[in-house]
Nucleic acid binder design. Structure first.
Length: 624
DNA sequence: TTTAGGG
DNA sequence: CCCTAAA
């Protein structure tokens, strides 16, 4: 029996919304003939065929590591030639590299990406033509920090720029990177704003085995109608003869219903999937209903402004330390690298100013649902309206300090702790949906549908993905995971158009795919710096617990650590836990700054005492 | 939000 | 410290 390779594709990019639900890990099985000499080339072809369908006019599929001298090779991959030659020339291949079709050497790195929940390598879709607003919605940053810039926020309001829209709060943006892309210039008058067009990325990750090594196509390349592929699954079972319709022509996806081998989830409203490596990832996001659409200029709301504007998307999506998050499901972030000065600088006292470098923004994901019978133009309008509405009305800026949300708006930066250089005080900004909890009409009965993210749902049928929204939105988690992605026949069968009316702005987590989790969600929330408790802190803690007992950590915090901003009641609770543990283990096993034995004795005593008290309480009211 | 526990 | 179910 031939071993099999399961390939997982996570596609992240502006066209993610038209991907099948749960398709982030959509698998495409491909042939697995190890001895084929052109595996890599074929692999690429497959990828192109898969990805190609999502290209829009004038775009091309470009792998990450291309060599410059082979830029022309990229043109072979242009699915639809750009009509306007001059336009295409305006959009540079911002990557320093160009696709090497022969060797696909650039893909080798992908082989190292085995964990789905780790940010995978990706392929870039490089537009030859101007980006549409929607295109840039789900941009994901490039792999390397500062390596490239992408159209981010700007794209969201493509066509909506107007003078002064950037002007707002007392912050300044400084251009980190500019790119000459005339086609990306907004129709407004943001002459000063130049953007690199390096929008969407496709993510591509191998499940357990290398992605390309074993690839072979049994069928024709992407130019044909069908690709027959064979591969292995995680269990080593040979999976034969799966066909991948050439997406370029058929605009159909074929994905395996079994997404990623994940099996279990927690019923916490955001179903998660546990991947091979044990990491979890949200398989869908909470969704949210957009209220009436009103156009507003995003940048009138934007707290960052300045004559110098530029966006830079740095990449921490791939950060290994991406396990944290705020629990919200934000779309692949748009990172805005900027230099922001304090809104209220003290004249003449430079030291009191804070220089903040905003490296990233979290932007809620937008999903759009629209009937397939709607016109392209209406789609554009819907998206634009949705975007402008969300950006204008539905967002506010959140600030994260040390990974914690700063909620008290009345405090000064100094009080809050934003007194050091932005680099060092671990400050993050994000765009959050202003309103919470929007439910889908058809999902009222389902828990876990509500979302922090503002989403519009693109009717999957638009992309020839047969997913009946009502059904898809209501099936339970397990069902969703295993049946959401339809097989080809289903896709074909699903031709029932929705009413050709105004596109319903509804929300469904088309983003079953956790872009945000893999890529965007956690990048801001860095782990807090470790700050071991000093002996005096331990002393204070012990004393407070002696007085207040265990189980009243908020009181302990207020009582003894009220001015220690970096100590939360959870911290204190945790510290107490470790203290008890420390007191119980042998001194040789203890680490860190030694805690006086006297304190540890008190810990044990106090712990025993309050444990006893708790036991008594339990006895007094036995309810369980 | 807090508490309580597991990771 | 993180994450999060439960309360």
């Amino acid at each position: 029996m031939v071993s099999q390779t399961r390939l997982e594709y996570g596609f992240i990019g502006y066209q993610v919304p038209v991907f099948p639900r749960a398709s982030r890990s959509a698998r495409v099985r491909v042939p697995n003939r190890k001895n084929s000499g052109n595996n890599e080339k074929h692999a690429f072809e497959i990828l192109v065929s898969v990805a190609g369908d999502f290209l829009q006019e004038g775009e091309t599929f470009v792998p990450p590591n291309c060599k410059k001298d082979q830029q022309n090779a990229c043109k072979n991959l242009v699915l639809k030639e750009q009509e306007d030659e001059s336009q295409s020339s305006k959009c540079n291949l911002s990557d320093k590299e160009t696709y090497n079709e022969k060797t696909l050497s650039g893909y080798h790195q992908i082989r190292t990406v085995n964990k789905f929940s780790h940010a995978p390598d990706r392929f870039n879709l490089k537009p030859y033509s101007s980006l549409k607003g929607f295109d840039k919605l789900a941009n994901v940053s490039g792999r390397k920090a500062n390596h490239s810039s992408e159209v981010g926020i700007s794209s969201l309001i493509s066509g909506e720029f107007s003078e002064g829209q950037f002007e707002d709060a007392g912050a300044e943006l400084s251009i980190i990177q500019t790119v000459k892309s005339g086609t990306l210039q907004p129709t407004g008058s943001l002459d000063a704003l130049e953007m690199d067009c390096k929008p969407p990325h496709y993510f591509c990750s191998g499940s357990k085995t290398s992605l390309f090594k074993d690839w072979t196509t049994l069928g024709p390349s992407r130019h044909s109608d069908t690709i027959e592929t064979v591969s292995r699954d995680d269990n080593g079972n040979y999976v034969a003869d799966q066909r991948i319709k050439n997406l370029s022509s058929s605009r159909r996806w074929r994905v395996s219903p079994n997404l990623n081998g994940g099996a279990s989830f927690k019923n916490d409203g955001k179903r998660r999937k546990i991947f091979h490596d044990g990491r979890t990832s949200y398989s869908r996001q909470r969704s949210k209903r957009i209220s009436p659409l009103k156009r507003r200029d995003f940048f009138n709301q934007c707290p960052f402004s300045g004559s110098d504007r530029g966006f830079q998307l740095d990449d921490r999506f791939n950060s290994a330390a991406d396990k944290r998050g705020d629990g919200n499901n934000y779309c692949a972030a748009i990172r805005v690298a900027s230099s922001v000065t304090s809104p209220h600088p003290h004249p003449g006292s430079r030291d009191r100013n804070v220089k903040l470098r905003i490296k990233s923004f979290k932007v809620p994901e937008l999903l759009v649902e629209i009937p397939t019978t709607a016109t392209v133009g209406s789609l554009k309008r819907s998206v634009m309206e949705a975007v402008t509405t969300v950006l204008g009305d539905g967002l506010h800026v959140g600030i994260l300090l040390q990974g914690k949300k700063v909620r008290d708006d009345s405090k000064t930066l100094l009080q809050t702790g934003i007194s050091r250089d932005g680099k060092h005080c671990n400050l993050g900004f994000m765009l959050e949906p202003r309103h919470a909890q929007i439910k889908l009409p058809w999902c009222l009965g389902e828990q876990g549908i509500t979302s922090h993210a503002t989403s519009f749902t693109l009717d999957p049928r638009t992309s020839s993905i047969s997913l009946d929204p009502p059904v898809a939105g209501c099936i339970n988690g397990a069902q969703r995971d295993h049946h959401l992605v339809p097989s080809l026949p289903n896709i074909s069968a699903s031709t029932t158009p929705l009413p050709n009316s105004v596109p319903a702005i509804s929300v469904e987590a088309l983003a079953v795919v956790p872009i945000h989790h893999r890529a965007g969600r956690r990048e801001f929330v860095q782990r807090r710096i470790r700050r071991p408790f000093s002996v005096s802190e331990v002393e204070a803690l012990v004393q407070a617990v002696e007085k207040l007992g265990t189980g009243r950590w908020r009181d302990v915090k207020l009582h003894a650590f009220d001015n220690a901003k970096h100590r939360t009641y959870v911290d204190l609770k945790d510290k107490w836990k470790t203290l008890v543990h420390t007191a119980r283990i042998s001194p040789q096993q203890r680490r860190g700054e030694p805690v006086p034995l006297e304190l540890l004795d008190r810990v044990l005593a106090v712990h025993a005492y309050w444990s006893q008290q708790q036991a008594k309480q339990q006895q007094l009211k036995p309810g369980v």
